[in-house]
Design a protein around this nucleic acid. Structure first.
Length: 1007
RNA sequence: GCGCGGUUAGCUCAGUGGUAGAGCACUACCUUGACACGGUAGGGGUCGCAGGUUCGAAACCUGCACCGCGCACCA
């Protein structure tokens, strides 16, 4: 045993052991290992990201799971990496380039140069967060680090795109999309966040063309879009307006356009609500999703009055053109007011969609984009267990760790079908499949409902982005006319393509041809439509060729094709993460061993963005779910309940916290404060708690070391004291509690159990009690106590290791526990030491453990508590040694007396069955007898009588409560036998105590 | 509007039908030989409100209030 320094200095120790683990390949995952697999893929942080408390929480959990799995004999893969994060990364680098003066606008550089700059930036600064994760102790297999724009990964993305295109699930279309005027790109519905916004509801009048003098009043929040109105709509059943349907009004803006050109129809549409606003709706197909649909129903023209960057276009009229949309809103109201058309403008709060990334209101905009009809939706929906659904296998949660050194049982729990009839009917249009496939669990399970709800109402996914940084859409396009175009010769004659659809698709190439005139796809099997179907020489077609093969793409470019300029939504690559990082589409060893992964740990905020889509992708391309359990972390908030964010400045830097308190303290404190399923409020006090706990652990180790002696000597069962047996039983309880809590992903409960066990049980009672033996002269017993201490400490360190990897490794090695273990089971590092198991029946028998020992120890500690109470009542400092006398109920071993004496800080603790106390001597009634605190010259009979009187009052209070219950005939009649017995026992105990106390009081004589 | 959480000590939170708990904060005493980042003891709660079920409710049911979140939205 080498000497343990006086204080724990985290930085040096953390650096030392992390390097040791890495150098010894402790994190690397071997697909050829015979051990059962445990795998987890990191939610890839943005490549521009740096460590936040959210990451700390998330990755600490993953590390705990991974480290524990290693200790339970699993071959562990924790696969790290980063995400290219399209918009975010492009923004960061563009901003930097503008700051450096390298460009004003991205067009100054051009696409290729800018993308080149971003790559440069990525190589230089990207992925800092991965280095920071090392500081957190993350045991990732760094040799497998992946980036979503790695060459291999990008090929997966293209391949998946082509596959979906082939399946007809990806299509190009002109649709209303969410347009971000700041980022100048389309967004998916999930990237739009509804926010309340204060504004005005403007009421303005328009005149009915056919009935001069008759006006309709329209309510709107967006008067600047009036120039884009192409109709006015009322509900067909609204009696106020039915007579006007079919007539026209004059649009209010722009004023300079001749009145007759501003005539728009009054139409009837069910979408209009009677009692909202005035019951008259202005219809703006170009700038509102619902209005667009009305426009489609009524074949209305579309007038676009906004530019992509959110300014008013020329069509908006001279006065508005060029203005920003918000300025234009004010201006439009002013114009209406000046024209006498504005009736009122009242303050109004409505919900507006904001671009999540740029934090500006989005514009619904008609534009041509790529869309995806989600694949494998039914399977994805059916595979997740809903709250309340029973799991077939004995109801236990989480992965089942195999016993150390034992080969895996089949962990696959699919195929159960007897839960099918218990599946609750799911509300919604499309009932989920029977739950026979439901074998993925969410923690907490209520997220499964949110997930199911989203899948039920799922809309096609707009996957194209008008950005440069990302995976470019792998589609090449050429417009051809029948006259000058020879499909066979120019396209299919080219060596890379074939004339038949099947053969092309077999080669990974998908060709689609659309007639420009009507947008219809022309789909004869052999593309021979060219000559036979039309005689019109001017007919033009758009030919789209999708291929994941860049070689082929370049060939197409030589033939006049041009690649689509859009890139794909970042999540279109992230959703492949669990298998694209493991070598898909090759059938790799890694995939065979580690897919599907065991656990996914992520935030509930990306349940739709990422989790749901990964599940679909897993089914679609692997035919299997990507993970078995999903743990949704808490959201960390500040004391005001706000999310932590850099812009609010309420986000402490984890690296500062590590510097101040140590990594283990940060990990332990965070885990202790983050219960399953609720948000957590960050408080540095929690990290302080972690730091204090580390110190306690450190000092307990030092105490052991100061006792010297042999490390981990064999325990001699016959020499075990009641305290020894007590702590062994407490350890056993802690092992069970911690293991169960971890199985159910209840990390805060696991840490609470560890804290309680180590601090309150081991340090406060056992170590203190052991001092009686250690200070004594019985060497055999001394050695035995040290052996028990080592046994408990070595198991404790292992229980702690997943939470606090560094300090536990340092002590594991420093205390010499590594020496007795086989190299691959803790001999080299605690990382592979076997996870503690509860005692077997044989072990219990060997140590002669039974409840009576525990009860006796508890009784002893109760004597101590009561004696300390007497001290307090008589104001005797805990450091002052005083004489106590115990008048015992039964014979006591000398050793037990010695323990109580040291715990009471008594000198001496006299055991005297015949003790005759002076009248008025303070006394406490304990489970082992009457405990006196003789106070020479300080005896106050009246005070002592009063003190005992208070005790009696307390006892009588309890007694009364129990008796009321027992007296109720219903109680005795209906209560389970066990409960009745408990209450009867309680009654007996309290009344005995009452009698004894009364006797003690009476002995003092009457006042 | 629909759905989901939450409401327990001053603060942060455990507690799935049977004697109300932890950490922090607070009070008193203690620099006793592992630890003052510590020890010992202590004060502090009609468990959001109102009904109901039950012998018994912080827990189960119903309704309400307030806080938070998600989805959908009416111009």
């Amino acid at each position: 045993m080498s000497e343990i320094p006086k204080t724990y200095e985290p930085p040096a120790i953390e650096a030392k052991w992390y390097a040791f683990w890495e150098q010894n390949g402790c994190f690397s995952a071997d697909p050829k290992s015979p051990k059962p697999a445990y795998s987890i893929v990191i939610p890839p942080p943005n490549v521009t990201g740096s460590l936040t408390l959210g990451h700390v929480l998330n990755n600490t959990i993953q590390d705990i799971l991974a480290r524990r799995a290693r200790m339970t004999g699993h071959e562990v893969l924790w696969l790290p990496g980063t995400d290219h994060a399209g918009i975010a990364t492009q923004n960061v680098v563009e901003k930097m380039l503008r700051k450096e003066g390298a460009m004003k606008h991205r067009d100054d550089l051009g696409r290729e140069a800018l993308v080149g700059k971003i790559w440069e930036w990525k190589e230089k600064y990207g992925g800092i967060i991965l280095k920071q994760l090392r500081a957190l102790g993350a045991s990732c297999d760094w040799s497998r680090t992946r980036f979503t724009m790695d060459e291999d990964y990008s090929r997966c993305v293209s391949r998946v795109f082509v596959d979906l295109y082939k399946k007809g699930l990806i299509y190009r279309g002109k649709r209303m999309v969410n347009w971000c005027p700041a980022s100048l790109t389309a967004l998916s519905d999930e990237e739009v966040e509804m926010k309340e916004q204060k504004g005005f509801m403007y009421h303005f009048r328009v005149e009915v063309a056919e009935e001069p003098g008759t006006f309709l009043t329209i309510a709107t929040t967006r008067p600047e879009t009036i120039p884009a109105d192409t109709a006015v709509a009322v509900n067909p059943n609204d009696p106020r307006y039915t007579h006007l349907i079919g007539k026209h009004v004059y649009r209010a803006l722009p004023l300079e356009v001749p009145k007759e050109q501003r005539r728009i129809p009054i139409i009837a549409d069910e979408h209009v609500t009677f009692d909202f606003g005035t019951g008259v709706l202005k219809v703006t197909p170009a700038h509102d999703k619902a209005d667009y649909e009305i426009g489609v129903r009524h074949k209305l023209p579309v007038i676009d009055v906004l530019t992509p960057d959110g300014r008013m276009a020329a069509e908006a009229g001279a006065e508005l053109a060029g203005l920003d949309r918000f300025a234009a809103r004010k201006k439009a109201a002013e114009i209406l007011e000046a024209a006498g058309a504005l009736e009122k403008a009242e303050p109004y709060v409505n919900n507006v969609g904001f671009s999540e990334r740029a934090d500006v209101p989005i514009e619904p905009r008609l534009s041509e984009q790529w869309f995806l009809k989600y694949p494998s939706v039914e399977q994805a929906r059916a595979c997740v267990m809903q709250p309340g659904e029973l799991q077939k296998e004995n109801g236990s949660a989480g992965f089942q760790p195999a016993a150390s050194g034992i080969l895996p049982d089949a962990q696959d729990d699919r195929g159960s079908n007897d839960v099918a009839d218990k599946m609750p009917a799911t509300a919604g249009r499309m009932p989920a499949l029977p739950s026979s496939n439901a074998n993925m669990r969410f923690f907490p399970d209520r997220w499964a409902k949110v997930y199911d709800h989203w899948l039920n109402g799922i809309q096609d996914w707009c996957i194209s982005r008008q950005l440069w940084w990302g995976h470019r859409v792998p589609v090449w396009k050429k417009r051809v006319t029948i006259n000058d175009y020879q499909l066979d010769a120019d396209v299919f004659g080219w060596s890379g393509l074939n004339a038949s659809r099947e053969e092309n698709e077999k080669a990974g190439v998908v060709v689609r041809v659309f007639r420009v005139r009507d947008g219809l796809e022309v789909t004869p099997e052999d593309y021979s439509f060219r000559t036979s179907e039309t005689k019109d020489d001017t007919e033009t077609f758009d030919v789209f060729v999708a291929t994941a093969d860049e070689e082929k793409g370049r060939g197409l470019e030589k033939n006049g094709f041009a690649q689509d300029t859009d890139v794909l939504d970042t999540w279109f690559s992230s959703w492949l993460w669990p298998f694209a990082t493991m070598g898909w589409p090759e059938k790799t060893d890694t995939l065979a061993k580690f897919y599907p992964t065991t656990d996914l740990v992520t935030g509930p905020d990306i349940i739709f963005f990422w989790v749901a889509r990964m599940i679909m992708a897993g089914f679609e391309w692997m035919g299997e779910l990507p993970f078995k359990n999903v743990y949704f972390t808490s959201i960390i908030r500040d004391k005001q309940g706000r999310k932590l964010s850099k812009s609010l400045g309420n986000s402490p830097d984890p690296l500062d916290l590590i510097a101040k308190f140590g990594t283990d303290a940060l990990r332990f404190g965070t885990m202790r404060s983050a219960p399953l399923g609720t948000d957590v409020t960050f408080d540095e006090k929690n990290i302080e708690l972690g730091r204090n706990f580390c110190t306690k652990l450190w000092n307990a180790a030092r105490f052991r070391q100061m006792q010297g002696g042999e490390t981990e000597a064999d325990i001699v069962p016959t020499l075990l004291t009641s305290d020894d047996k007590w702590i062994l039983l407490r350890l056993d309880a802690a092992v069970r509690e911690v293991s169960t809590a971890l199985d159910e992903y209840r990390f805060s409960e696991a840490t609470a159990a560890l804290y309680r066990f180590f601090w309150s049980e081991y340090c406060d009672w056992y170590v203190e009690a052991s001092k009686a033996t250690l200070a004594g002269t019985d060497d055999a017993r001394k050695a035995n106590t040290l052996a028990v201490m080592d046994y408990v400490f070595s198991h404790t360190l292992r229980l702690f290791h997943p939470f606090m990897p560094f300090i536990t490794e340092e002590l594991w090695q420093g205390m010499g526990f590594a020496n007795d273990m086989p190299a691959n089971q803790g001999g080299k590092t605690i990382m592979f030491a076997p996870w503690p198991e509860p005692f077997t029946a044989e072990e219990r028998e060997y140590f002669i453990l039974d409840e009576s020992d525990e009860q006796f120890a508890n009784a002893k500690y109760e004597v101590v508590n009561l004696g300390r109470g007497l001290r307090r009542d008589f104001n005797i400092a805990s450091s002052k040694r005083v004489r106590f006398v115990l008048k015992p109920n039964a014979k006591l071993a000398d050793h037990e007396t010695a323990v109580m004496q040291i715990l009471l800080n008594a000198e001496p603790l006299e055991v005297n069955a015949a003790f005759a106390a002076a009248k008025g001597t303070p006394v406490a009634l304990t489970p082992l007898g009457e405990l006196f605190l003789p106070l020479d010259g300080l005896i106050d009979v009246a005070a002592e009588r009063e003190r005992i009187g208070k005790e009696i009052a307390k006892v009588e209070d309890e007694l009364a409560k129990v008796r009321v219950k027992l007296a109720d005939p219903n109680f005795a009649g209906k209560v389970p036998a066990k409960v009745l017995e408990d209450h009867q026992q309680r009654e007996r105990d309290w009344s005995e105590k009452q009698a004894q106390l009364a006797k003690m009081r009476d002995a003092l004589g009457s006042p």
